[in-house]
Design a protein around this nucleic acid. Structure first.
Lengths: 205, 205, 205, 205
DNA sequence: CATGAATGAGCGTTCATTCAT
DNA sequence: TATGAATGAACGCTCATTCAT
């Protein structure tokens, strides 16, 4: 009797509406923050009744879980696209980071929402699973990048685990900085340095 | 008419009680997460009536603001102590990071609370000021470390802004990883690498 | 387009299912009371989907209306049988009441449902018509009993209207008592007295 | 933390408001019937927010329970007054019934509400206790009337239990008739006969 | 200094019903 | 004939906050 939420939209109309609600939730999260994003607000933003939000997503928690998944999907896709778009695979490491950074900072609301959900995930098992899944996919993506670089004659001078963890942590930390302070010169310079460091870890053979 | 919250406790008893409430709030935040930490729960944890929480701290927001300040204070103090405790100032960079990491991961609840508040701060002006203030102090502390290293004959090969931003972002990113996955081997290795990189940026003259 | 509910069941299967739903509703009403008897509960009890209940009976109100009619039918039939079964018509008054009481208290759920519907009928025009109709038939039945008694040489010493109204009110009042307190000695004695009084009102010529 | 509902009004204002809500509920019950009397409707009728209804009365059920108690109180008081007002105690039986009937039919809403609650009580333990309590007090009152009649030289020719049960059942049955059909001639005549019968059961010595 | 009363906002559930196929 | 999807209404619970003392 439940509409299976987002994963299996029962009817075109339902799917459209569920998607609209997710979009609205993302806008709210980006604009108002996690705790200020109430069901009513999302409903108003989406132009549906509050009841409908709970019809498509069983609870506030479930809505955010779906949203986290959706955000993760979008980010991973954006990152994938950014990497795939690289003409010269040899640049994978050099250009990769910059493209990924651009992809990640393209939508502020997305990031705010991601961090809201991430923080909440620390004490919420359900969100944690979703966020973990996203991060795992991120790690996989990074690992593939490393393999690609190697295939292109690069020699990775550090352990893959370290590289992956460092890049992920670096991304998160820098993104958090970006969220709070915006595009400051320091941040820009630091990103450049980070990128340079990464490149130095994967020199051409 | 208002008791000025924590900054100016009217009586010893009041001050004690206010502190107890702050402690309780920290425990709740660490255990239950930001949004699940309601005034009632804090009150129960502190063993006072819900109304009392609002008596000492004018609102939920104010409570968390106070808490953020208190957390920041503790962390900064811990970091300061960690650094001051270094016997050989020449090790400031090498050992500094490791001490600071230990200080930061000493109390998980503190970190959970810090991130909860940080995330919320993205869309909350008041919290933002407090969190910004904490980060500024963190940056100052890092800057002093750099100066200290220079005074001890080290040559810092990167721009101070970059170093400070990178270390802060690195700390945040790694801490977020630690919160979610705990003391994994990857994380440990990455921390080691991070530390090594920092050291390489500040070689002895 | 509508299946005319119970009165004109389209197919044997439909008729059977509609009857099952009515039976289930009666059980629910007897067990859970009027306001706790929801369509879902009836559906569960009948082993059909909630939607089906509304398919056979256009609304909750219509279902209860049908049920009231069905209950009325059953009770009237039971009363008729009870009276018809009297061997000596001269006992019509004496034994009649006792037989009718037995018929009425044979199925508690039936009575609970009847009173539920009756009370609701006070403010519901549709149910009121159905309940009124039932009471009218009850009154007719009582009137016939009086005629029968007269035909058997009894002399009715009170106005028929009074007799009918009194017996009906007596039945209702006693039934309400029975529902709430069960077969208490007081109730039994009172029924005996009521019966004796009725007999005294219709002495043999 | 709960306001103890009606039994112990915390403040004058609260008591007034709680009373207003009870009055509103009575009006709704009398006008719309039991199942159509929602919290919102009561709140609107009382001119308070729905939340307030649940603040003073913990639930819809509790509200009706309180209301039942209040109705019982009023009716018992009205009956008491009716009896106390009798100048010649010797008339207790004769005039008593008529006065009580007048008292009971003075407020239709009261009766509708009483029956709504009574019917619901059949399957609701909480309401049942309240309704039972009311009926017990009614029985006590009737018993006292019998004693009074005896004290005034009447000789009661039937068992007290029977008299009490019969009068109660008679009242209920006739009241139900009155609710459904109003002041019909039959009803009036029947009441007269009922009264006459009662008087015959308690002849002067 | 401390507290209980009062109240608006939010969440999530069940219910009855209509829509669309 | 039968059914799932969609939806407004009601209920009742928690939360944060203000009022009044």
């Amino acid at each position: 009797m439940r509409p299976m939420a987002f994963s299996a939209p029962p009817t075109p109309k339902g799917a459209r509406q569920a998607q609209e609600i997710l979009d609205a939730a993302l806008r709210c999260l980006g604009r108002d923050g996690f705790s200020a994003t109430s069901l009513s607000r999302v409903a108003d933003e989406a132009g549906v009744s509050k009841r409908m939000v709970l019809y498509y997503f069983d609870s506030r928690e479930a809505l955010f879980d779906q949203l986290a998944e959706s955000i993760g999907e979008r980010l991973i896709t954006a990152l994938d696209d950014a990497i795939d778009g690289l003409e010269d695979p040899a640049e994978a490491v050099t250009a990769g980071f910059s493209e990924m950074w651009t992809a990640i900072t393209a939508d502020r609301a997305l990031l705010v929402a991601l961090f809201g959900v991430t923080t909440e995930a620390v004490t919420d098992a359900r969100l944690d699973r979703t966020v973990s899944n996203f991060k795992d996919r991120f790690r996989d993506l990074l690992r593939k990048q490393l393999d690609l670089a190697r295939a292109n004659g690069r020699r990775i001078t550090v352990d893959d685990d370290i590289a992956v963890t460092a890049v992920l942590a670096g991304f998160l930390g820098l993104a958090l900085e970006w969220l709070e302070r915006g595009d400051t010169p320091e941040l820009e310079k630091t990103i450049g340095a980070f990128q340079a460091m990464l490149t130095s870890l994967a020199p051409p053979a």
